[in-house]
Design a binder for these strands. Structure first.
Lengths: 224, 224
DNA sequence: TGCGAAAGTTAATCGACATTAACTTATGTT
DNA sequence: AACATAAGTTAATGTCGATTAACTTTCGCA
């Protein structure tokens, strides 16, 4: 029943497909090819192969959907990835803008014993450094809030819970102004026409663009 | 000058070649093929390619010798490997018989920033959990002693410095009787005809075979 | 010194993953 | 409803790393 074992590239494909679907995007061929930085032709070929292995449902010209088995592999990679990210920031003090790339390299080779050891070391964490939820070993991922900072009324204190980017430069900057999970945030002032926002971050003030505010998820209540 | 960047398989080949040479074995085609668990034909082909890339000196039917560049890559892999092994035992309490395999997977992807972070975390270690020396970043590896336990006279207290095997079962057993680096050892009695040895290990007694005693390196002096 | 076994190489082939180029299907106007 | 364009697929091809089978070289030894 279970094929041999997915290759790295296959695991990447399944993960990319899962992420696109879970972000509300359509898991189309070109989206997946874009996410994997390969040609559409390569993605087509891979979809065909994975379809034959029963890891996804593939009909020419149609959207791709993961099977149960395919989704479990995707979630396992995501779990590895996010556990590694957190381990790297927590245990080795790596800045959060670097851990994504590193975790991408290691996620495929993380055997179960080491995975468990890291999980234990981190005391069964539920989110990674960016606030993204870590799937359980059973493949259950808690739904993440989508309460965006950009929609928060002025003067309402909240806590940052998630940052929706993996852009290195941007993450480095956001880290430098403490715009990251756990930080308390209040909008002091919002300029019109999608103008910048003046924020209170813990105890210091800063300005961010509307665009950046669209990437920040905050808690529903005052305290997370 | 420096080619693109060696692939995993190429890095493995260079590492295997280096290790064979440093163990006094000849770095012949079949030895390398054996170490990499591929056919001799595959090793031949790889030797040819690596020769063209200037990573080793290759003449048909002759022993293989690494160039400066090839040796640096091998040493980098070895450094990665041993740092990872130590990190896994020290930071994540993984038993020493498991870390070799895990490190083999990760050594190729360990980027320099993470390598440095681990090195710093471990305070610039000089040996891995098996007592094997860790090459410096500059590619310098201290020569390891070859003072075998099997040749130690009775009643002479020494310290275990190195264990020359990567066999999982054996390492697990040796660990269980504390026959590992740092442990104090004295031969209480040696049976003739390559018979077993009765040992004092720290404060407990145990018996080991002649064969096993050939794998244990001890310090030159009483205290390491 | 010459022969047979061991070691090494070459050739043919395969599978996985990538590419570009050319073709096909789907889609959204008007 | 027709057609231009976007999206997707197929075909031809290349590279890397592996295999088996057949051939060649080396080397130990009688």
């Amino acid at each position: 029943m279970n094929g041999p074992k997915a290759s790295r590239v296959q695991e990447d494909f399944l993960k990319a497909t899962y992420l696109l679907a879970s972000e509300g995007e359509e898991a189309t061929n070109s989206e997946i090819a874009g996410a994997m930085e390969v040609s559409p032709a390569a993605a087509s070929a891979m979809a065909k192969r994975l379809g034959e292995q029963g890891l996804l449902i593939y009909h020419r010209y149609q959207e791709i959907e993961l099977t149960e088995r395919g989704r479990m592999i995707a979630l396992e990679m995501l779990r590895h990835h996010r556990l590694l990210e957190l381990f790297l920031t927590e245990s080795l003090n790596k800045p959060w803008e670097l851990v994504h790339q590193i975790a991408d390299n290691f996620e495929h080779d993380l055997d179960e014993v080491l995975e468990d050891a890291i999980d234990t070391y981190l005391e069964g964490p539920s989110t990674d450094p960016h606030g993204d939820p870590i799937p359980s070993k059973e493949g259950i991922m808690l739904p993440a809030s989508t309460n965006l900072l950009v929609e928060l009324p002025e003067g309402t204190p909240r806590v940052v819970t998630r940052v929706l980017t993996q852009d290195r430069e941007l993450l480095a900057y956001l880290g430098s102004i403490s715009l990251r999970p756990q930080t308390q945030v209040t909008i002091l002032e919002r300029k019109p026409f999608n103008g910048p926002l003046r924020l209170l971050l813990n105890d210091s003030e800063d300005l961010i663009s509307h665009e950046v505010a669209c990437l920040i998820v905050v808690s529903e209540e005052d305290v997370a």
